[in-house]
Amino acid sequence: MQADHLDGNALAGPLAEIFAADVSVAVSRCAACGLTGPVASLHVYDRAPGLVARCPGCEEVVLRLVRSPDAAWLDLRGAVTLRIPLGGAGPGAVASAGGEPGADR
């Protein structure tokens, strides 16, 4: 495993290609240890055929994303839940369809 990792902020672009909401601000719950936190805080390893996001608490795989020329493969095996903020106040407002700056999805 590479020693240096990125974080879930780096997933924002690749996931914006798939989802209408900004999944990087979603709160995920790790299937292995139960830790909850924003997807933006996951440890992301990108020296692989895709992106691998691991739990910052237990380093188990939470999410994997591989983009082939004509499809995206998304493996969410390590996330029990994703709480995705939709509209209103808070970080999710960026991802809402409310016309706020940044709502380009």
């Binding site: 924002a12 672009g13 914006a16 900004d22 990087s24 601000v25 933006a40 960026v94 380009d104």
Partner: peptide, 10 residues
Amino acid sequence: LRGPVGGWFV
């Protein structure tokens, strides 16, 4: 380029 992206670190 693609964006803006990332609503967490704002």
